[in-house]
């Protein structure tokens, strides 16, 4: 028998707060509750998405730096290499890595942010174009 996943528990609490409690509040309590619901939704997305995102980040970093280590240590090394100019934005792999990592982060932190929505729409139409090209 499977335990209900934490994401479902979080979603149920957020739903209760939003649908049942929020309408009865006003002023700063309503404001802070709305922010709190956003926090719960963010934590739920983090539980759902972070592990896979970090795995992807790890494998990109391993390729980019040519070695395998703990994620945090490799992030730190990338920071140092960028700061010292050893690796620069001229390298397409670095640009791709930074974008992919940042987009994964936004999918958790703020998926309704205008620049994220625009980036996802662009990458969607890019995928379509590639598919169309492949079919032709």
């Amino acid at each position: 028998m499977k335990h209900p996943p934490a994401t479902e528990l979080l979603a149920s609490v957020a739903k209760f707060l939003r649908d049942d409690l929020l309408p009865s509040l006003s002023g700063s309590h309503a404001f802070n509750l709305r922010v709190s619901i956003n926090v719960l939704d963010l934590v739920r997305r983090e539980v759902e998405l972070q592990a896979a995102a970090e795995e992807r980040e790890h494998s990109r970093l391993a390729k980019l730096l040519g070695r395998n280590d703990e994620l945090e240590a490799m992030r730190q090394e990338l920071c140092e290499q960028i700061a010292s100019g050893k690796i620069t934005l001229d390298r397409a792999e670095l640009r791709e890595h930074l974008r992919a990592t940042t987009l994964d982060r936004l999918a958790i932190d703020q998926p309704s942010y205008s620049a994220y929505v625009a980036a996802v729409a662009r990458s969607g139409s890019e995928d379509e174009r590639k598919k169309d090209a492949a079919e032709e």
Binding site: L94, L98, T102, L103, L106, Q110, Y113, A115, Y116, A119
Partner: peptide, 12 residues
């Protein structure tokens, strides 16, 4: 992270 994406939209 929002500002990181805004930065990348300019830099890369």
């Amino acid at each position: 992270s929002e500002t990181e994406l805004d930065l990348l939209d300019i830099l890369a």
